[in-house]
Simulated assay, not measured.
Amino acid sequence: MSPGDEHDYRGKEQGGRTDDPYSTLGGTRQTRTRLPDGDPGHPHARRPVRNSRSLVTITGIVVLLVAAIAFANRGGSDDDASSGAKKPGTTGSAPTAATGTKPVQGKNGTIASGFAHDEQGAQSAAANYAVALGSAEMFSKESRHQILDTVYSSAAADKLRAPQDQAYSAEFLARLGLDPDGNAPQGSTFISRTVPVGTKVLEFDGDTAKVAVWYTGLIGMSGQDSTKPVSTTWKTWTAQLSWSDGDWKVTGASESDGPAPVPGDVAASKSDAISKAVEEYGGFTYAR
């Protein structure tokens, strides 16, 4: 996954999917991670050749979704120091250094919530929202609606709900090997994960922020008969955030390809090893 106006798997405008079927969610700052209080699983191959770039264009909305479409057919002052920001020409921690500040106060369901009302909090929120929007839960209507209502502002969620339901049509799900309810065939495991690599604040004005999340993603069907094997992608998801009801909420988003590294020499694992890893390795709560 899906990190809002939508539809390319993380669209090119506000909040949707990009046309890459493996779009899961960039900047110069790296995040630190903290194990969550009981969340499940992760691990990566090459991203597949894109077949199309049009769901987001068709709906005119971009919600951070896991790039399944192509897969299917982010110094000076004390304030800066506390937020992890570093201004040109000043000294301080490196862009990839963790701030050490507690990232979040709680959770709304399985999604982290209660982020700090500062730049660091905005980055933490963007990273965790990218994970939620790039998850396999986005392919089921009920859980998708819950994610949209948690991650987006009320107004944005209301506008996205219908377009998102249309984007995740039975036909689209079928191209991914899923049934109309988003379920994988018996004996197979559908995988969709977003793994933030870093975050960067592009704009910040107290109650509003623009944060870029550089991420790598996994998406595909793991199974002996799968024609859509699990592949990886590299994307940058940029979210417009607004402080609302005591937390950061996404009001719009866009996505672009890369930066992408040169593929490594590690051979792709067999499907059963990928399925087992996803079941056994839990996820993270991300913080700046």
Score class of each variant (00 low, 15 high):
residue 282 G to K: 11
residue 18 T to L: 05
residue 60 G to Y: 10
residue 114 G to N: 12
residue 107 K to D: 05
residue 285 T to N: 04
residue 266 V to R: 14
residue 62 V to M: 06
residue 60 G to T: 08
residue 230 V to I: 14
residue 240 Q to I: 00
residue 147 I to W: 05
residue 137 E to K: 13
residue 27 G to L: 10
residue 150 T to E: 07
residue 138 M to H: 06
residue 24 T to E: 03
residue 218 L to H: 07
residue 245 D to H: 07
residue 194 T to H: 05
residue 238 T to V: 14
residue 14 Q to I: 08
residue 205 D to E: 13
residue 118 D to V: 02
residue 4 G to W: 06
residue 127 A to I: 01
residue 246 G to Q: 11
residue 235 K to C: 04
residue 275 S to F: 04
residue 211 V to T: 02
residue 49 V to D: 14
residue 26 G to D: 12
residue 66 V to I: 07
residue 49 V to N: 12
residue 12 K to S: 11
residue 221 M to Y: 00
residue 225 D to M: 07
residue 286 Y to N: 02
residue 285 T to M: 04
residue 98 A to D: 11
residue 65 L to G: 12
residue 32 R to N: 08
residue 55 L to P: 02
residue 287 A to R: 09
residue 116 A to T: 02
residue 134 G to D: 02
residue 5 D to Y: 10
residue 168 Y to S: 00
residue 200 K to E: 15
residue 122 A to W: 09
residue 179 D to H: 03
residue 260 A to E: 15
residue 122 A to L: 07
residue 199 T to C: 05
residue 21 P to N: 06
residue 170 A to F: 02
residue 240 Q to N: 14
residue 139 F to D: 03
residue 26 G to R: 09
residue 252 G to K: 12
residue 185 P to M: 08
residue 161 R to T: 15
residue 261 P to H: 07
residue 103 P to L: 11
residue 242 S to G: 00
residue 176 L to M: 14
residue 243 W to P: 00
residue 147 I to L: 08
residue 80 D to I: 02
residue 142 E to Y: 01
residue 85 A to N: 13
residue 91 T to Y: 10
residue 165 D to W: 07
residue 225 D to W: 07
residue 5 D to K: 03
residue 40 P to W: 09
residue 206 G to R: 06
residue 285 T to Y: 06
residue 78 D to W: 10
residue 7 H to K: 02
residue 247 D to M: 08
residue 260 A to P: 06
residue 210 K to F: 06
residue 240 Q to E: 15
residue 266 V to T: 14
residue 29 R to N: 09
residue 270 K to L: 00
residue 45 A to D: 13
residue 199 T to I: 03
residue 278 V to L: 12
residue 76 G to Y: 09
residue 197 V to F: 04
residue 90 T to M: 11
residue 129 Y to K: 03
residue 58 I to H: 10
residue 3 P to N: 07
residue 138 M to T: 04
residue 97 A to W: 12
residue 260 A to Q: 13
residue 217 G to V: 04
residue 267 A to L: 10
residue 285 T to E: 10
residue 123 Q to W: 01
residue 92 G to K: 12
residue 216 T to M: 08
residue 201 V to Y: 11
residue 9 Y to P: 03
residue 1 M to Q: 04
residue 64 L to T: 15
residue 168 Y to E: 03
residue 9 Y to E: 13
residue 180 P to Q: 08
residue 212 A to C: 04
residue 188 S to F: 05
residue 219 I to P: 00
residue 126 A to W: 01
residue 230 V to T: 06
residue 54 S to Y: 04
residue 238 T to I: 13
residue 63 V to R: 02
residue 132 A to I: 02
residue 285 T to R: 08
residue 156 A to I: 05
residue 287 A to V: 11
residue 180 P to D: 06
residue 239 A to S: 14
residue 288 R to D: 03
residue 61 I to D: 15
residue 161 R to E: 15
residue 124 S to Q: 03
residue 101 T to K: 13
